[in-house]
Design a protein around this nucleic acid. Structure first.
Length: 857
RNA sequence: GCGGAUGUGGCGGAAUUGGUAGACGCGCUGGAUUUAGGUUCCAGUGCCGCAAGGCGUGAGAGUUCGAGUCUCUCCAUCCGCACCA
């Protein structure tokens, strides 16, 4: 019996699958479809172990559903545009295209060695012109439909990458890729009008039961819907030129009687206008803008204001006026960029009021508080209560007062109830070379002219200069100079390219079309979409997933798709982590450079002590990475896949350990020793009787394993499924079978089931064993084993017996024993007897099939 | 600050509707096989205790015949958002 050798076995089966086109998928209306998709990789250079985990999960689902008779679509592609290719060009001189396609070649080879059940015929990269031509066409249709617009706006400018970033790409005031402090610039940009769909994107979250709650909550918060009142305060005396009144947004109009000031954002038009003749205000505004938006800056920043030479009239109180400030804590992007301040019931307003000695009038009285003595010190009261000090609102609850105040303001025609969103429109213009060109032309005479259909795709120029930062398309000598398709005069091509999130917002639809010529074949898209199971990292909870949901709606409006929601079920898997190691000189060390024994680490070459650091997400910079290739070389792809799914629940992080993968490797060998050596034992038919007790027990174990593992896979409990597989293997190994034909059949049944159950995890080993057992065809084409319900019930049940809630014994009772019989057996148990001796039995609780509890006093 | 999650042996983690806590794996201990082994196999392994027994699911209370699971109050860690009016 030869030792299992994945090095020869794995390539063999991979080429069998390839030759037979086993995983080639076509539409087949006669079968139910199942579309399983893992977030496609960015071709950064090499596959890492996190990819292995991600794709192993998808592969388990794909192979399982396939065995259950589904027509499974499981494709793979490349999210291939983006900054790293351009950075590589700047650093090494390699062309982004060459760099990208070389990486794709490398990574495709690595993925294929993992033995994934993927239809490679559908592969594409988003940088293929055959892919992005559709993106350009869709963009022009969206433009026609009014779903996109060009507008001038403040943008987040990354001074290192020299490009614009979406709000979502700014983290703590820094660019998500470069880490540079983001600046604000006013530019003319293309925007997808995602805010038009804010309400739909929000409410439809409730109809996504297959999504994790945390992702839905994050999207909900990101969209940030609030109901409030937009209202206008009239200026007291002469209004500043061009201003009718000061329009503010508030969610607390119930506290209007506590208002003691108004404030506008530093970049509010009123502030900007006033600053024209006021150098001091100019400086103040400049200060505010240089403050930055980082977490620390916000927390430490004092509330600061600048008093404008105007006051506004209180809408409800005749003769009362409120001072108007420019204040650093007001955001122009939210609401109207102006507020009224009620210090008693808003902490920010209170901080501000204390600093500038403004009135603090409480108007909401907490339950049980005394109106005569209730006062605000340094903490604003934001809880529930009854209104007081508030004229016509007095005595109302906060909720009723809100409605009453809104009604009053609307009746006065001073404002109206509105809804506000935190979500901003999606700016998609990027000043980069390695992206999808935006297909429009700027003509002095005709204005904005879409590139005509016949001229699509607008392809990137081959030659480009990457020697300096900025946009190589902009400084290309010829590319942008074109003739206007409308008037024939000289015109300029748009040199911005799309944010790469546009590319990944519809790729799942492109996979559904069988040929690259089609963006989405309507029939194929209707057959395959939505994606039944989407799997990827939690880091895309907002960005990618929100954009994809939005884009799908646009595509539906443009007639490409019939669905609105692209992903029915979403699973967010955890990361792969590893301990970090630091040498004496403080430099990070690769795990293979370190020998760890009994918790003490030494450098293998020098023997010098090594500090073991925290367990972190694998990253190149900390060198705590392991190469999937090395692992596959040493243990095989099956063992790597097995381990990645075995130790932790898939949504949780898993720590990569050598002992863990060694354990998986041992299991591969155990299974091979068990199934590979058994001979052709798969029975044609199972005898109805004649089994020994052990034979029957083994049959029960087989069917228990089938039922349990099936349920586990359905619920993404891969770690539990693997634990059951260990139990099942142990059961087969330790079964003391007789020589009877029936027992032999029971063993054949068990082995046949085992091999089919491990196939989603360890597909190569499963094929090898299947052949050895005399299975017909390929195991990946074999149907999933079915559990026989009759074999899932035990004749005899073991019950725990408690005395006063503490476990004192264990009894075996027949399955059909009634409560009385069970009680009698329990009372007779020696361990139980010892604990009830000399005491009065007050009550006996028998829960059939579960437990017996004897209460004594 | 707001929102979400998670706390179980030396470690990763199991425990349907409240019903035998610690499945399974790793590690560790002892033994056998092997020229050797970081191979394979067997046995053991929550803690204290020779034992009987006692104690045990972040802490504390509560409901219950019975709580890892339900309720309340804390504590810790992680994630997301954050001057959003």
């Amino acid at each position: 019996m030869a030792r299992y050798n994945p090095k020869s076995v794995e390539p063999k089966w991979q080429s069998v699958w390839a030759d037979k086109q086993t995983f080639l998928t076509r539409e087949d209306p006669s079968r139910p479809k199942y579309y399983v998709l893992e977030m496609f990789p960015y071709p950064s250079g090499r596959i890492h172990i996190g990819h292995v985990r991600n794709y192993a999960m998808g592969d388990v689902v794909a192979r399982y559903k396939r065995a259950r008779g589904f027509n499974v679509l499981h494709p793979m592609g490349w999210d291939a545009f983006g900054m790293p290719a351009e950075n590589a060009a700047m650093q090494t001189g390699a062309h982004p295209r060459d760099w990208t396609y070389q990486n794709i070649d490398t990574m495709r080879g690595q993925l294929k060695r993992m033995g994934l059940a993927i239809d490679w015929s559908r592969e594409f990269a988003t940088c293929d012109p055959e892919y992005y031509v559709h993106e350009q066409r869709m963009f022009l249709e969206f433009l026609k439909l009014g779903l996109v617009e060009r507008k001038e706006s403040y943008v987040n400018w990354d001074p290192v990458d020299m490009t614009v970033l979406a709000n979502e790409q700014v983290i703590d005031g820094k660019g998500w890729r470069s880490g540079a402090a983001v600046e604000r610039r006013k530019l003319s940009q293309w925007f997808f009008k995602i805010t038009d769909r804010a309400d739909d994107l929000l409410s439809a979250l409730d109809d996504l039961p297959g999504w994790p709650d945390n992702v839905r909550t994050m999207q909900k918060n990101w969209i940030g819907k609030s109901r409030g009142l937009k209202m206008s305060f009239q200026f007291d005396g002469a209004a500043p030129e061009g201003f009718d009144g000061l329009e503010v947004y508030t969610t607390r109009p119930d506290t209007l009687f506590g208002a003691s000031f108004c404030a506008v954002a530093p970049d509010h038009p009123l502030a900007v206008q006033c600053a024209k003749g006021d150098p001091e205000l100019q400086n103040f505004i400049k200060d505010c803008q240089s403050l930055g938006a980082s977490e620390e800056a916000i927390e430490k920043a004092d509330k600061k204001g600048y008093r404008l030479p105007f006051s506004v009239r209180h809408p409800f109180v005749e003769g009362e006026t409120l001072p108007v400030f420019v204040a650093n804590f007001i955001l122009m992007q939210y609401g109207t960029g102006a507020i009224f301040g009620c210090p008693a019931h808003d902490q920010r307003d209170l901080d501000f009021a204390r600093k500038y000695n403004l009135d603090v009038t409480p108007v909401v009285l907490p339950p049980d508080a005394d109106p005569a003595s209730f006062a605000i010190e340094n903490e604003a009261y934001v809880g529930p209560g009854r209104l007081f000090n508030s004229d016509f609102l007095n005595g109302l609850s906060v909720e009723d007062a809100l409605a009453a105040a809104i009604a009053k303001v609307e009746e006065m025609e001073a404002g109206s109830a509105t809804t506000n969103y935190r979500l901003r429109d999606w700016g998609v213009s990027r000043q980069r070379y390695w992206g999808c060109p935006i297909p429009v032309i700027h003509c002095e005479a005709c204005g904005l002219v879409p590139v005509p259909e016949k001229d699509l795709p607008v392809v990137l120029p081959d030659e480009a200069d990457f020697s300096e930062p900025g946009n190589p398309l902009e400084r290309h000598p010829t590319w942008k100079h074109v003739t206007c398709p409308s008037c024939g005069g000289p015109a300029l091509r748009e040199t911005d390219t799309f944010d790469t999130f546009v590319d990944s917002s519809w790729y799942f639809a492109r996979f559904a079309a069988p040929t690259p010529e089609q963006s989405c074949d309507q029939a194929a898209a209707d057959y395959w979409l939505p994606v039944d199971q989407y799997i990827g990292g939690i880091e895309h909870a907002i960005l990618h997933l929100l954009y994809a949901r939005y884009f799908t709606r646009n595509m539906k409006d443009a007639g490409y798709l019939s669905v609105e929601e692209p992903f029915t079920n979403l699973f967010t898997q955890g990361m792969v982590t590893h301990a970090t190691y630091k040498g004496e000189d403080g430099a990070w060390l690769f795990p293979e450079e370190v020998d760890v024994k009994d918790g003490v680490a030494r450098h293998i070459e020098t023997g010098a002590p090594v500090a073991i650091g925290s367990i972190e997400k694998m990253s190149k910079s900390k060198k705590n990475v392991v190469s999937p290739e090395d692992i596959a070389e040493a243990y095989g792809a099956d063992a790597a896949r097995w381990f990645m799914l075995s130790d932790s629940p898939p949504e949780r992080d898993v720590e990569w350990t050598d002992s863990g993968v060694e354990g998986a490797w041992r299991m591969m060998n155990r299974i091979w020793a068990l199934a590979g050596a058994a001979g052709a034992v798969i029975p044609d038919m199972l005898p109805a009787e004649g089994y020994s007790d052990a034979g029957l027990a083994l049959r029960r174990a087989s069917h228990g394993a089938i039922a349990g593992i099936t349920d586990d896979i359905e619920h993404f409990r891969f770690n539990k499924a693997i634990a059951r597989l260990y139990e099942f293997v142990n059961a087969i190994k330790t079964a003391e079978l007789t020589d009877s034909a029936a027992d032999a059949a029971a063993r054949g049944e068990a082995l046949s089931a085992l091999v089919r159950l491990i196939a989603p995890y360890a597909p190569h080993l499963a094929e090898e064993c299947w052949t050895a057992l005399g299975g017909a065809g390929l195991v990946c084409d074999a149907p999933w084993p079915e559990a026989d319900a009759a074999l899932l019930v035990q004749d005899e049940i073991v019950l725990g017996v408690q005395v006063n809630g503490k476990r004192r014994g264990e009894i075996a009772v027949p399955k059909e024993a009634d409560a009385q019989a069970v009680e009698a057996i329990a009372m007779a148990d020696a361990g139980v007897q010892r604990h009830i001796e000399g005491k009065t039995v007050r009550k006996v609780i028998v829960v059939p099939g579960r437990i017996v509890n004897i209460v004594v006093g």
